[in-house]
């Protein structure tokens, strides 16, 4: 189910860092399926996960996760 008014640009930043979903998942301590659902804006991450992801892909949280 898509989270309303939520856009996730994680895929773009992940590819910029040349990471696979599996590698990113391992770095932030979640399953690959969780990253997949995040990229499709079907999962609303916790603040901790959002921060961890932003640190790994080296991009600001508000650039990766956009709440309209």
């Amino acid at each position: 189910m898509r989270v309303l008014d939520f856009e996730c640009r994680l895929k773009k930043y992940r590819l910029l860092k040349d990471l696979t979903q599996e590698q990113l998942a391992a770095k932030v301590g979640v399953r690959r399926e969780t990253i997949m659902r995040l990229e499709k804006a079907q999962y609303n991450p916790s603040l901790k996960l959002a921060i961890d992801i932003s640190r790994v892909v080296e991009a600001p949280i508000e650039e990766i996760f956009v709440f309209k």
């Binding site: 979640v30 399953r31 969780t34 999962y43 991450p45 996960l49």
Partner: peptide, 8 residues
Amino acid sequence: NTFIDERY
């Protein structure tokens, strides 16, 4: 044997 992450 599923990894227990926050979504789980």
